[in-house]
Nucleic acid binder design. Sequence first.
DNA 1: CAGACTGTATGATGAACATCGAACACTTGG
DNA 2: CCAAGTGTTCGATGTTCATCATACAGTCTG
Lengths: 116, 116
Amino acid sequence: MAAKSERAGAGYRPAPVHTHPDDVPLLTALSALADPVRIQLIRDLAGHPDWALSCSNFDVPVGRAAKSHHFSVLRDAGLVEQRDQGPKRLNRLRREEFDDRFPGLLDLALRADSVT
Amino acid sequence: MAAKSERAGAGYRPAPVHTHPDDVPLLTALSALADPVRIQLIRDLAGHPDWALSCSNFDVPVGRAAKSHHFSVLRDAGLVEQRDQGPKRLNRLRREEFDDRFPGLLDLALRADSVT
DNA sequence: CAGACTGTATGATGAACATCGAACACTTGG
DNA sequence: CCAAGTGTTCGATGTTCATCATACAGTCTG
């Protein structure tokens, strides 16, 4: 269809939009980490090699839609980078870049005990 | 006393309840810091000697009730200690204790540029 | 004691957010 | 081409949270 223009519909999937940690406000970073699901996501991610996990590989107690939302928040906070490979979206934790912008914060999120 | 006394009404003011940083969950600490008003409060606090400021001395763009609420959140997060002196409630930033529990986090909140 | 000042509790309101179910788009494999 | 798998968007829902206005309790000073 004419209009479909090939790929402009609402549900189309362009390359994921990323924000570099250098451009992330402090409050955005803290808010992104102040959620139990997202903490679990980045801890899972930290436990695997870069690009090893696609979104569906994470075992968090929420549905697909919510999970997609959480990854969007993590991208906006400069915590996660994503890359499409076929139908899958592979993930990488932006350790060094994020640590340059907020020294020690990621370590805290990964190591502090008793999240709740 | 059965009734214990006359001072049990709703608006009575007992000594403020504190939580030691050691007992603060990670998410509570992050959530407490993920607010622009509270960031401003602790930065103000960090710029003055311990016990130098009472609640009304802080210049944040919210009313008294909201300010009182924010101090309550900061107490619960182990960030602030309060002491009553007459009608005033004096404040202290719990730098060392909080830093022992969450190393580097307070420094980040105090020094990171571009809060928003 | 009266009045001014300081801080808290309560109830209400509006905004932000986490979540879900369903629909949609794309990729890959039969 | 069709079906299965992956991830996003949309609309709706319920909850949490920041805020205010008001009322109240306590302290201090005159």
